[in-house]
Nucleic acid binder design. Structure first.
Lengths: 226, 226
DNA sequence: GCTATATATCTTGTATACAAGTATGAATTC
DNA sequence: GAATTCATACTTGTATACAAGATATATAGC
């Protein structure tokens, strides 16, 4: 693996784990030193992260971890909903949908005793559920865009599932979405899916604001400084 | 403006204008020499283009202009349709939609004598029409993704509008879409819009295949070489 | 004490040198 | 003649040196 690739992943992890906080300013040499690398691969990684929307560069004046913009997250949730609903609608018209969904069904339509309980595990499974839906479709571009959108949302979504009752609710919601698709009830499926994402969106927003309230000022600082 | 930025734009133009053909292999130093720059900004530009999907790098083994993949274009058209229809649906529920659409209406709902006739101009206006629709919405992320998708399609869309009658048809289609939105007829608007994009997609595909038939072998070569 | 200017420091932008890996082709062996 | 090995040229990956520009600090002037 490239050094640039390593630096890219490490930086992303640092941002995701809030070791680098939204709003933080930093320089290339600073990162290079920390990562034991030269500026060249660091720059390559940073420019990738910039395109991903995590950091931004100021001309000859350093870098910044992109501050949170909740409106931006809301809109991404909209796109997510749109893409997932479209795939679900198409899926309802496929005759082999039971086959395609079988993997998800065994995970989500199981007995309560077999359910995962660790928030971290469930968060991972939840992502896999939504990715799985997209994979059932046959539109790799839609899938790629969806993955991209989810990636951008991960920084706040990972704070989810610590809310009491959220895990159980997720199981219920996912299984009823799957059932609706299996019975080709397109409108019910999309309705449930939309509601599910909506709940997740609200939960995450509340949790986020609560958990990082001490740093809220920074997190919500708008981008237009100077 | 950055040198890297200049190189990026120039390379993109070269690819768009088929001075660099899909499938062409090239090296960083080759580009650097042509652009009168060092490899550093060239690399920066190339990695941006890679993320954009125009080129790809082979580990220590040069670069390649990404060959055409028509299935990939088809799928992008799907995403485009999805996004535009969603915005149109929302727009139909807005009370100030006449105001928001006024700019587009004056351009597209005009007398036949006032219409543009040059394919290049119309191609530009057509893009502006679809971008304009997205701008009428209030979802900047959707707008950004749409712009991105259209950007990727531009390399083939620009071959459009040379088909006889296509320009007139575009005017008719656009104006009836606008009328449908103005009368809040959401389903008619999306139906017309979908059909319009579908026609454009088919035309472009035919033209593309026809125009570049001598290079078709190269253009359609799949990506999985070696 | 305040403002303006100049300088020093720090930042990214770019060029270049070198390291590491790949593919090609010639020489060699069978 | 065919297969294999080795050397060479070429490619990207990385480090470093320097240039250009921005910011902050200190100093001079009032």
């Amino acid at each position: 693996m490239n050094l640039a690739e390593k630096v890219y992943r490490q930086l992303k992890e640092d941002i995701f784990d809030f070791r680098m906080l939204p709003g933080d300013r930093f320089s290339e040499s600073e990162v290079a030193e920390r990562m034991q690398a030269s500026r060249t691969p660091v720059r390559e990684a940073l420019y990738r992260l910039e395109r991903d929307g995590y950091v931004q560069v100021y001309f000859r004046n350093g870098w910044q971890v992109r501050p949170f913009d909740f409106r931006y997250f809301e809109e991404l949730y909209d796109v997510r909903t749109l893409l997932e609903c479209e795939v679900v609608r198409r899926l309802c018209m496929e005759t082999d949908r039971a086959e395609r969904l079988s993997g998800l069904v065994t995970i989500w339509c199981c007995k309560p005793s077999q359910r995962q309980v660790d928030p971290v595990d469930v968060a991972f499974l939840d992502e896999e559920f939504h990715f799985g839906l997209l994979e059932c479709g046959e539109n790799t571009q839609m899938e790629a865009i969806h993955k991209d959108v989810c990636e951008r949302l991960r920084i706040i979504r990972r704070l989810d599932f610590y809310e009491p009752g959220r895990i159980q609710a997720t199981y219920e919601e996912h299984s009823s979405i799957l059932e609706a698709i299996l019975s080709a009830d397109s409108s019910r499926a999309t309705r449930e899916l939309t509601r599910h994402i909506e709940v997740s969106r609200n939960t995450v927003r509340d949790i986020t604001v609560h958990r990082i309230q001490e740093a809220r000022q920074r997190y919500t600082t708008d981008l237009s400084r100077k």
